[in-house]
Simulated scan of single mutants.
Amino acid sequence: MIRWNADQTALRQGIGRWCEALSAGDIERDAEGVFPQDQWKLIQESGILGLPFDERWGGLGQSLLTTMYVLEELGRGCRDGGLNFSVATHMVSSGVPLQRFGSQELKQRYLPGICSGETIGAHAITETESGSDALAMRTTATREHDDFVLRGSKSFVSNGPVAGLFVVYARTHPDGGPFGITAFAVERDTPGLVIGEPVAKMGLRTSPLSELHFDDCRIPASAVIGRVGSGFLVLDHVMKWEILCSFIINTGQMRYRLDRCVEYAKERIQFGKPIGSYQSVSNKIVDMRIGLDTARKWLYDTAARLMDGENVTTDIAVSKLLASESNLASALAAVQIFGGSGYLTEYGLEKDLRDAVAGPIYSGTSEIQRNRIASMLGL
C-alpha cells in the first residue's frame, strides 16, 4: 500500500481546485466536438503538464507515481473526458520520449514548450492497414545526406489537429523487424507534412483526432529520438507510460461515478424504498467498487515495479485490461442505475459511456493484451 506524503497530497489537492473551471460547459463542448482552447489555457496555468519533467526544462521533477496520483484527481474532478485524454496524450506522447531518449539539442528545443503547454504534443504510430500490428507499418524514413525523408501516412492521431510537435514512428530499414523502426520529432509546419481535418468520433470528442500524410517530408537527421533503429524501444517505453497515465485518469472518473451512484441509490425512491436497498442495484454498485479498487491497485503497483526497474510486461497488459474493461462496465452500470435519466445527455452519464468504449481499443486492444499475457505464460 502506497503512503502518499504531504507534498504529493498538496499537488493532488492543487489540481482539484482547477477542476470546476475545467468542467464548465463540458456537455456543450462534447456536443460541438471541438478542442477546448480556453480550458487548455487553464491546464497550462495549473502546471500539471510539467509534472514528470526535469525542473531545468520548466517541469516539476515528479516521479511517475506522483504524476499518476495527480492525474487520478484530474479524472475525478474534471468532467471533460476528452480534455483529460488530451492532457495524458500530450504529456506522454512527446515529452516522455524526448526526456528519456532525446538528444540535448532536442530537449532544449522542445521540452520547455511541452512543460508549459505552449506546444501541444501528439504521436503518430497507427496506420490504417496495420492497426494493432505496429511492426507492419509502411511509413518510411529514407536517409538522404544529412536528412531523412518521410513518406506515408498515419491515422488515429490524437491531438493531431492542434499539435505543434509530433513524435512519428517510421520504418528506416525494410527488413529490420523491431530494429527497423525509428522515432522522429517532427514540427507542425514542416514542408511535406499534411494534417487532415478533424475526424468525428463516438466519444472523447473534445480530444481532436486526425490523419497525417507525409509527402516527401524532409527533416534533419538531428530529429531522430534515440538512435536509428531504436524506435521500438522508444515506443515500448512510451506505451507503458501511456497505459499507466491514461488509465489512472479513468480510475478517477470511476471514483466520481461510483460516488454519484451511491448518492443516487440512497435518494431515489421506487416502490416505497431507496433503490439501493434492492439487490439488483446494490450489486451493480459493489461491482463498480471492486472494479475501481482492483484497477487502481494494478496500475499503482505496476508503476512502482516499473520505477524499480522490474519487467512489467505482463503487469502492464493486466493493468490495461482491468482498467479499461472495468471503466466501461462502470459507465454502463451508472447509466442503468440512473435509468431513463442516465440516458439523457444532461446527466453526463451517456457521455461517460461513449468515452469509455474507446478504452478497450486504444493503447493495444483487449485482445492484444490477452494474447500478450498468454504469450508470457508460454502459450
Rank of each mutant, 00 (worst) to 15 (best):
Ile2Cys: 02
Asp7Ser: 07
Gly14Ala: 12
Ile15Gly: 11
Arg17Gln: 13
Cys19Gln: 05
Cys19Trp: 02
Val34Asn: 10
Phe35Asn: 05
Pro36Phe: 11
Arg56His: 08
Arg56Phe: 04
Leu60Glu: 15
Thr66Gln: 09
Met68Pro: 02
Gly77Glu: 09
Phe85Pro: 02
Phe85Trp: 12
Ser86His: 10
Ala88Gly: 14
Val92Phe: 12
Phe101Ile: 03
Tyr110Gln: 04
Leu111Tyr: 04
Ile114Thr: 06
Ile114Trp: 09
Ser116His: 09
Gly117Asp: 02
Ile125Pro: 01
Thr126Glu: 11
Leu135Gly: 14
Met137Arg: 15
Thr139Trp: 02
Glu144Pro: 01
Asp147Leu: 05
Gly152Phe: 10
Ala163Asp: 08
Ala163Met: 12
Tyr169Phe: 15
Asp175Ile: 03
Ala183Thr: 01
Phe184Cys: 11
Glu187Pro: 00
Glu197His: 15
Thr206Glu: 09
Thr206Pro: 03
Leu212Arg: 01
Ala221Trp: 06
Gly231Asp: 13
Leu235Cys: 05
His237Gln: 10
Ile243Pro: 02
Leu244Gln: 03
Ile248Asp: 00
Arg255Lys: 10
Asp259Trp: 02
Ile269Phe: 12
Gln270Arg: 15
Pro274Tyr: 01
Gln279Cys: 09
Val281Gly: 09
Ile290Arg: 00
Thr302Asn: 01
Met307Ala: 14
Asp308Tyr: 04
Val318Glu: 06
Val318Arg: 03
Leu322Val: 00
Leu322Cys: 00
Gly342Asp: 05
Thr345Asn: 14
Thr345Gln: 11
Asp352Cys: 13
Ile361Val: 13
Thr365Ala: 13
Glu367Arg: 14
Gln369Ile: 00
Ser375Asn: 15
Met376Gly: 04
Leu379Gly: 10
